[in-house]
């Protein structure tokens, strides 16, 4: 773990620096250059509305450092109930870093330091006294690459409930597994092979298995870090449908590289650039009438 962890931290940090150094050369117009300068200023005011009507999570003045490199600057953002928030932006803009703050996954990187006020239902989750185990049971996460455990399909889904003692007997556990697989849309494909290894499924199925695994713990928020980037278009479509269904019950934050995906699945969209949250608003608005030049350049495909 040590090696990969540090390497990851370095990668993330390097990516940030790389972007910082390259950014000026990417300009295609004077206007963009000016916008960059305005972003580079110390105090930056996010465009649009950062607050949500019925917030599950609120983030205020969030800063993240990987060693000496700062990866996130004063980010403010709410995640609303029964809502999908899409986080978009060029590589290394800090959107994955941000999402990892929401369930303290940055703790697993030795050099990472997260500051700011992050609350789940008004409870500070970024303080020392926060119980990370409890937090992560409430805020689930799905990763970029499907990462089923090297266990059977059943055991993969039953892993969380078993840990947390959610089922008092085998029948309850069976029920949780079945419900979770059904909700993840994997039941029909998997019900006859529950005892076979989860790694034997196709990529899209694996990712749905990971989603089933996450919802088996009955979380309040689900974080998704580019869940479809390793999948083919058909599998992607299924996952997007699934996200849509899940948003009826969960608050969801999804990092995505694909603007079409953001437009399809989310109600709100946040645009990150160089570790700063540039703009956040109704998805429609972001894609039709963005308030910031950088957002416009990005969604119209001028860079990124």
């Amino acid at each position: 773990m040590s090696g990969s962890q540090t390497a990851e931290a370095v990668d993330l940090a390097e990516e940030e620096q790389l972007d910082n150094s390259r950014a000026p050369r990417m300009d295609q117009s004077q206007a963009v250059a000016e916008d960059f300068q305005s972003v580079a200023q110390e105090e930056y005011e996010t465009h649009g509305t950062v607050t949500a009507e019925d917030p599950v999570m609120t983030v205020r003045d969030c800063n993240v450092f990987y060693g000496d490199a700062q990866a996130l600057f004063d980010v403010n953002l709410d995640i609303g109930r029964n809502q999908v928030v899409a986080l978009i932006g060029p590589s290394g803009c800090g959107k994955s870093t941000f999402i990892r703050c929401l369930n303290r996954m940055n703790d697993t990187i030795d050099t990472a330091v997260v500051t700011g006020d992050i609350r789940l239902y008004g409870e500070d989750i970024n303080s020392k006294s926060t119980d990370v185990v409890l937090l992560r049971a409430r805020v689930g996460m799905v990763f970029q690459k499907p990462n089923p455990f090297p266990k059977s399909i059943f055991e993969n889904v039953a892993y969380g409930p078993r840990l947390h003692g959610l089922a008092s007997n085998r029948a309850e556990l069976d029920e949780i597994v079945e419900t979770s697989l059904r909700r993840a849309g994997l039941w029909e494909e998997a019900k006859d092979r529950l005892d076979q290894p989860g790694t034997g499924l196709s990529g899209g199925q694996q990712q749905r298995l990971c989603i089933a695994r996450t919802i088996a713990v009955n979380p309040e928020v689900i974080l998704m870090d580019e869940p479809c980037s390793a999948l083919d278009p058909i599998a992607t479509a299924r996952i997007e449908d699934l996200i849509d269904e899940l948003s009826e019950n969960y608050a969801i934050a999804i990092v995505t590289h694909s603007m079409q995906q953001a437009a399809r699945v989310s109600q709100r969209t946040a645009y990150f650039h160089l570790g700063k949250l540039i703009e956040v608003d109704e998805t429609n608005r972001i894609f039709t009438n963005p308030g910031h030049k950088l957002t416009e350049d990005y969604v119209t495909g001028r860079f990124g």
Binding site: M1, N103, M105, T108, V132, V133, L134, L135, R136, A137, G140, M141, F143, N147, P148, F149, P150, Y159, G160, L163, H164, C210, R213, T214, V217
Partner: peptide, 10 residues
């Protein structure tokens, strides 16, 4: 693998 497990609250 570790991330997957930690994210579930292990």
């Amino acid at each position: 693998m570790r991330d997957g497990s930690y994210a579930l609250g292990a």
